[in-house]
Design a protein around this nucleic acid. Structure first.
Ligand SMILES: [Mn+2]
Ligand SMILES: [Mn+2]
Ligand SMILES: [Mn+2]
Ligand SMILES: [Mn+2]
Lengths: 220, 220
DNA sequence: TAAAATTTTTAGATAAGTCTAAAAATTTAT
DNA sequence: ATAAATTTTTAGACTTATCTAAAAATTTTA
């Protein structure tokens, strides 16, 4: 069985919202995430429900079935593997790959992404630090990853992920020298707004709570 | 300006038929090539005409405008570069890549295929020996390429292309050891049906006129 | 708990691309 | 030059995914 690009995007969006909020997904939230109208969502949700990819009851929101979840995770796998390819092999920057991966993730082929995965030597994380599900849907985890906002003064860590893949944010991080793999140390924290001074290899930068809560760190 | 997958496929098909027959393309031929109905073709052809990608007069068939031709060639460029990638980097066989490239050719990105082209070190021909247009639309040519059917007894050459990318044909060639780059020599020709005995590096095979006329050779 | 606000669904339209059946135009054959 | 055959176009319908506006259900507020 094969699904339309639209169906796949709905499943992916439902998966994302379900994981984020830990409960069934509302029509409005879905409409908002997919930049469409609630009425359109209702239509599609009925269709996906009939195909048993989601469970849906009027006014109660939706959640993925086992099958729907598998499909969603597979699309996410495709997306992230393509992002690795674009950055590692074609030299794209991490803020340039998302849109293209949004297209590539829908290419229909049993083998393609598995071959690409071999070619890339089975990466576990994408250019934004997000985990890449394996063929069976298992998602790698990081043992002791925390938000930079939780790191105390003097403590050291390595940047392993970003919790926001907005292009401007990624470009900002690039300028601040806060990219994946960078070793950092908390130099100071300002109580009044929880902003921090962060020491990287060659400079110190001040970042807001907003920023530090979107950076994922592995403690040294 | 960006076009739908369908529009792009129509332009590509028109380009192919126009090149092949050297005259304007009929509704029926187009319908046949695109595996759709003549009535659907008439609709789309009106649409492309309004966009000035083709010229169209009722009952007179269509031909590409400069702009339409540029788009068609660009899609072909995409297709062939992706085919090279699939074969060279992901280890696909030449009979496995066409369908996937049919999808990949429509990915919308200014840069993607150019970067891929760099990554592949600017190939001039795809895995089937078809020329890859450059970014400006220039199509590489081979000076002295001829059909194997034109090669005389005793003459030698190298296989540089196939004029039919049907999967079964490609698999047949593989079995006969008649793949791109192979050196061959005409051992014998049978007058009654123009079939030939061909010597390759390690064996002799008999092939029909049908087959030899679809193999492109560069004379030694 | 009743009114107000919000969310969700329904009803009806639209656009792209496709199809069948029938009409119109063109080409081929007699 | 007509008739017959073929090609092409038109007319009308269908599917998918969308939208707006209005109705219905649910949740919040007072
Ligand atoms: Mn992404
Ligand atoms: Mn990512
Ligand atoms: Mn091809
Ligand atoms: Mn090819």
């Amino acid at each position: 069985m094969s699904y339309t690009k639209t169906e796949e995007n709905y499943l992916k969006a439902i998966y994302g919202l379900e994981s984020k909020f830990g409960k069934s997904v509302s029509t409005n939230d879905l409409a908002n995430k997919l930049k469409t109208k609630a009425s359109s969502v209702t239509d599609m949700v009925k269709k996906l429900s009939k195909k048993e990819l989601i469970t849906y009851e009027k006014y109660q929101g939706v959640s993925l079935t086992k099958c729907g979840k598998e499909i969603a995770i597979n699309i996410i796998r495709n997306h992230r593997i393509w992002e690795v390819f674009l950055v590692e092999k074609l030299g794209y920057k991490w803020d340039e790959v998302h849109e293209i991966a949004e297209q590539l993730e829908h290419i229909k082929s049993e083998e393609l992404v598995d071959r690409l995965d071999d070619f890339l030597e089975h990466p576990s994380f994408d250019p934004h630090g997000d985990p890449i599900p394996d063929k069976k849907g298992n998602i790698p985890t990081r043992k002791k990853a925390i938000q930079l906002s939780e790191l105390g003064i003097g403590e050291e860590g390595i940047i392993v992920g970003v919790k926001n893949t907005n292009n401007e944010f990624l470009q900002y991080l690039e300028e601040m020298n806060l990219t994946l793999g960078k070793k950092i140390q908390v130099e100071k924290e300002f109580d009044f707004d929880k902003s921090k001074i962060i020491k990287t290899d060659n400079q110190s930068v001040t970042i807001s709570k907003e920023v530090s809560s979107h950076l994922i760190i592995e403690k040294k």
